[in-house]
Nucleic acid binder design. Sequence first.
RNA 1: GGGGAGGUGGCUGAGUGGUCGAAAGCGCUCGCCUGCUAAGCGAGUAGGGGGUGUGAAACUCCCUCGAGGGUUCGAAUCCCUCCCUUCCCGCCA
Length: 422
Amino acid sequence: MLGLDYIRKNADHVRECAQHKGENPAVVDEVLRVDEAWRAAQTEAESRREQQNRLSKEFGKTRDEALLPSMRELAASVKERMAAADELKGELDRLLLLVPNVYDPSVPLGETEDDNVVIRHWGDKPQFAFEPRPHHELAVALGMLDLERAARVSGARFAFLLGAGARLQRALIDFFLDLHTSEHGYTEVNPPYLVNSASMVGTANLPKFAEDAFRVEGYDLWLVPTAEVPVTNLHREEILEASALPLRYVAFSPCFRSEAGSAGKDTRGYIRQHQFEKVELVKVTTPETSMEEFEGLTADAERALQRLGLHYRVKAMCTADMGFAQYKKYDLEAWAPGVERWLEVSSCSVFNDFQARRANLRYRPGPGEPPRFAHTINGSGLALLRTWTALVETYQQADGSVRIPDILRPFMRGLNQIGPPA
RNA sequence: GGGGAGGUGGCUGAGUGGUCGAAAGCGCUCGCCUGCUAAGCGAGUAGGGGGUGUGAAACUCCCUCGAGGGUUCGAAUCCCUCCCUUCCCGCCA
């Protein structure tokens, strides 16, 4: 969330940002209205409390029982005023969680996803001497992927990876974790896959996006929609030493998303699932270094695509498509020649202190200095499902087999191709 | 799941109704002292919010001793519920 003080002083800017993000700017005015009412109630309640504290101390010394009736009355009045102020504060806190983050001046203004800006490409579209096939034909024929049985076992938008297909995914996970830990300085984390509501609020998945996540019935637990949630919350409620920053974590996890509103789009094949696996990069930094660390994290994710030899592009997300909590966001899209589409394999975001405020994640700039909110950054490095898909389609061969790129062979026990189909 | 013990500041740890946002120690910061270092001496050192008010300040009040509720003029301290930690038993991968 944004700081209350920031909203008070920059209401116009916050409203404008909300507008361009496609959010309702009226929430800003509600915040200001409730804030004013809360402060009035707070001041009133506190001045009575002060009086009560004073008299109570007095009574402790004198034990003058004649004071008791009026003190009882005062106590009741304080209780009443405090309750009124608390109620307003509760309302204010609830509203603050609904104010979207502002964005960086470099973010392109836009109204739809068509206004996102491609800022760079890497590699070229692979050329084929034959008609490349879509993964949901190719991989199914190779026995690597089974969507039909998954529908029977779980439902639509679930998948089985089988045999070399499962092995290929495991190889990719290993490759990503190795790359980011040994070459990019991230610490490997194996996080919980169920998190409580407070953690979901911390990363801004709650309260606004509850319908996108799966909740465990009977418990205050949610299936993680991304490892971003547990890992960003790893140091929630802590004051970190400045010397410990930046923290760099890499975590593998499955990700569970209901995304109830998105039915009909991307639901064909193995592109959008209720469960997918992902290697996630998370950084916690100081405000001074966050933009630089954000660019660095994006470059780290790109390196994974480069090593795999996948043609990709980087898009700067426009205001309308960047999301509620993000301060700036890049999407990495890999080219999938079979379905002839760009597939989003990573989304890298910097949040400034938006998540850190929600999670009360702070650091101390120096000895004796007051704590400040940290900045948080995350991005996929990479999402397995779509990387797997782009890889299979890119490295397919005329006979229906899939070549394993050199970089992955050590992770596949030297296997150099999958198939051809029997 | 059953039973016991416990959750206090950056850390360790006192504190069973008012003089306690909290002893003591460690750590840290500043100063003094000593060829340097170490040791020693002195001072300071939790977080959040409101008001007045400035370029930061300063002053002042309120809240916070796991969370929430209750008793009381007054709660770290008494009562209730919940969460977490830990030990023993059960169960289990």
